[in-house]
């Protein structure tokens, strides 16, 4: 019998300095693989990307016609609505392209598909999130960029503001979905519920915040924090409203911390799909 410690020579350099660089290498390798997988089906790749762009253009046409008839909507102009679409579809696009498993988390948890990630020596949540890329969302991301170039303020300050809006918006999308998905650790398969929550966030993020009043407005800045995304055009891009900015950054940071905490708490209750096998 061999004695391990003498004969074993590992080939991993994980205990060497440069951890962050190697983590980034891993993340980019995962993204590269995702994209390569999508390219396997080139035609349907182009088709799905195209359909998503068409889907978004419909709303641009709708709002275009709306503002032709009614020039201002509670202080919002067509340009504001365009920038709102850019922030929302851009944030959604970043989530679905680079962290594509965020919307599928409930299903992965309930059906025990985290095993593979748990067996690998990488931060589990990060590993799970980056292991899928939604091809159609590339269309959303491109759309956001087109809209910004077409309607936005393409100056250095404008670009920084838009980048900040995208960052906050995508953080809210990602970690709201993570939290919604984590419900599955406690409640069994919540795929339907988690999807409805995500869908509500997405839908509300694409209508001017100014049309909502009272209770609806309260919901948009708390339970379904779509208000922080849809207010970007007037409260960040047009001119910086500090209280709003603090609120948005706070919400993004809070969701991020909460999502990570909830996920790792939930992992302790993870059943690897064994629950189903034990149903009597």
């Amino acid at each position: 019998m061999l004695t391990a410690d003498e004969s074993y020579t590992g080939i991993s350099g994980h205990d060497q300095p440069g951890k962050l660089r190697r983590l980034l290498r891993f993340v980019t390798a995962s993204w590269r693989l995702n994209l390569a997988g999508a390219m396997e089906f080139r035609f349907s790749f182009l088709l799905t990307v195209g359909t998503m762009i068409v889907n978004n253009i419909v709303w641009i046409i709708f709002w275009g016609m709306y503002f032709k008839r009614f020039p201002v909507l509670n202080g919002w102009t067509l340009q504001d609505v365009m920038m709102m679409w850019a922030a929302a579809s851009g944030g959604f696009g970043i989530m679905s392209v680079f962290f594509g498993n965020a919307t599928r988390l409930a299903n992965l948890i309930a059906t025990g598909q985290l095993d593979v990630y748990l067996a690998q020596p990488k931060p589990v949540l990060l590993n799970v999130l980056i292991s899928r890329m939604s091809v159609s969302a590339i269309g959303d991301l491109l759309f956001a960029l087109f809209i910004f170039i077409g309607f936005g303020d393409v100056s250095p300050v404008g670009i920084v503001k838009f980048a900040a809006a995208l960052l906050i918006s995508s953080m809210i999308f990602i970690f709201f979905c993570v939290i919604a998905g984590c419900l599955s650790f406690w409640l069994g398969n919540t795929e339907g519920l988690s999807f409805q929550l995500f869908n509500a966030l997405l839908v509300f993020a694409t209508y001017p915040t100014a049309i909502f009043k009272g209770f609806g407005r309260l919901v948009l800045f708390t339970v379904i924090p779509a208000g922080f995304i849809s207010s970007m055009p007037v409260s960040l891009i047009r001119e910086i409203d500090m209280p709003f900015l603090y609120g948005a950054v706070g919400m993004a940071a809070g969701l991020c911390a909460g999502g990570i905490l909830l996920f790792y708490r939930g992992l302790r209750r993870y059943t690897s799909g064994n629950m189903m096998g034990l149903r009597r």
Partner: peptide, 29 residues
């Protein structure tokens, strides 16, 4: 670890690509 029912290979890609990713996951020299 090998779980017969849960593959770690990327379904739409050739195995060589998964090996490459593995080398990044395990930070191999």
């Amino acid at each position: 670890s090998v779980f017969g029912q849960k593959s770690q290979l990327w379904y739409h890609l050739p195995p060589i690509d998964t090996f490459e990713l593995m080398s990044r996951i395990y930070e191999l020299r």
